[in-house]
Simulated scan of single mutants.
Amino acid sequence: MDEMDEPDRPRPWRPEDGRPPVRWPWPDDQLPVLRVRIDGRWLHSQVLARLAYPAGPRSG
Rank of each mutant, 00 (worst) to 15 (best):
R19D: 09
R19V: 13
R19T: 10
R19S: 12
P20M: 11
P20G: 09
P20K: 07
P20V: 11
P21Q: 00
V22I: 15
R23A: 12
R23C: 13
R23K: 13
R23T: 13
R23H: 11
W24P: 05
W24A: 15
W24C: 15
W24L: 15
W24F: 15
P25S: 03
P25W: 02
P25M: 04
W26F: 15
W26T: 04
W26Q: 09
P27T: 02
P27Q: 05
P27L: 04
P27H: 10
P27R: 04
P27F: 00
D28E: 15
D28S: 15
D28V: 13
D28K: 09
D28G: 12
D28M: 05
D29W: 06
D29P: 00
Q30V: 08
L31G: 03
L31F: 03
P32N: 04
P32G: 08
P32H: 01
P32W: 01
P32I: 02
P32T: 00
P32E: 05
V33P: 01
V33M: 08
V33S: 11
V33N: 03
V33F: 03
V33H: 06
L34P: 01
L34Y: 03
L34W: 00
L34A: 10
R35N: 07
R35K: 14
V36K: 07
V36G: 04
V36Q: 07
V36E: 05
V36Y: 02
V36I: 08
R37D: 06
R37V: 08
R37S: 11
I38V: 11
I38D: 10
I38R: 12
D39R: 11
D39K: 11
D39L: 11
D39T: 10
D39F: 08
D39G: 09
D39V: 06
G40I: 05
G40E: 04
G40K: 04
G40Q: 02
G40Y: 01
G40H: 03
R41K: 14
R41G: 08
W42R: 08
W42V: 13
L43N: 10
L43Q: 08
L43D: 10
H44P: 12
H44T: 15
S45N: 00
S45V: 00
Q46S: 09
Q46M: 00
Q46G: 04
V47W: 03
L48A: 07
L48M: 07
A49Q: 11
A49G: 01
R50F: 13
R50C: 11
L51H: 12
L51N: 14
A52V: 15
A52P: 01
Y53E: 05
Y53D: 07
Y53N: 07
Y53P: 00
Y53F: 11
Y53V: 02
P54E: 01
P54K: 03
P54S: 04
A55V: 14
G56F: 10
G56I: 05
P57D: 10
P57E: 14
P57G: 12
